[in-house]
Amino acid sequence: MKTGQKTENSFESKQTIRLKNQPKIIGSYAIVGPKEGKGNFADFFDYVMKNDFFGEKTFEKAERKMLESAITGVIQNAKLQPKDVDLMIAGDLLNQIISSSYAARAFQFPFLGLYGACSTMAESLAIGAVLVDGGFYQNIVCCTGSHFSTAERQYRFPLELGNQRPPTSQWTVTGAGASIVSLQGDGPKITTVTFGKVVDWGINDVNNMGGAMAPAARDTMLAHFRNTKTGPDDYDLIVTGDLGKLGSEILIDLMEDEGITLGMNYCDCGQTYFRRDQKTLCGASGAGCCATVFNSYIIKKLNEGEYHKVLFMPTGALLSTTSSQQGDTIPCVCHAIVVEK
């Protein structure tokens, strides 16, 4: 094939890929912490932990165990055996993605570690779907999670410190979600994938992730609509990850500027995750936020037939404490997948 020649799959730009064989999500599993288990999606989760320690000594070990049980759960859910899994793609928010790597240690799967911050669920599903679509693997486990206490300790202040959270701050979800992508079996199909570019519009306020990430969502959404020649009305649900209350309002404004109106079919996992009286200010965040909503609510509604075509596009803020302390702005990324009944 000559360079620049269009492949069979390709759209106008190579950023969007159409998956010819339409890999299916044959299993999904979501496990959450107690606070999340009282939120708006409470009825849809597979397992709610009784406390944040999950029977472990430290929060890091608890996060690891959460990922392990999500993977075990999803394998059962898909009615497979551990030996049927060919590859595991996972990531999380901790330094050196320890939760994922240590969780992978418990299983004998080949392992690819990802870091896409809160966009990891879409990133892992997209990569998994492409690998399955190409016929390289049979069953791929895609997994991610986050833990409020480990994230808080890494990025912010100790839990018991008596400080106030700024009104733009969000609450990291304690939870993990896992899916299995495969060509065989039943389940919603992943039909199109758009990988996002890293976008930075000069926000350096680490307490305003929604504002930092909204431009990335805009960029990927515009690219996706342009390449697939679709608009918001072609989807039953357009769902972003953890832009939160503020960020999703900003995204609506930004898209309005481009002449695209996001209506009732647009929602944000972070904004809707917790009930109002749970006092999470701008809503939920973290890799576990969209991972648990996607693997519980969205997959179930797709299976039930309530939704037929969902555009799932979580965003991730690719910063570290070092970069923000050095005054750098926050680069963000957003990956999109289309899941159809």
Binding site: P167, W201, I203, P215, L246, E249
Partner: peptide, 13 residues
């Protein structure tokens, strides 16, 4: 970026 920061500043609660 400047315009966006200005917009955000007006928008945040």
């Amino acid at each position: 970026n400047e315009a966006y920061n200005k917009y955000i500043k007006a928008k945040i609660p």
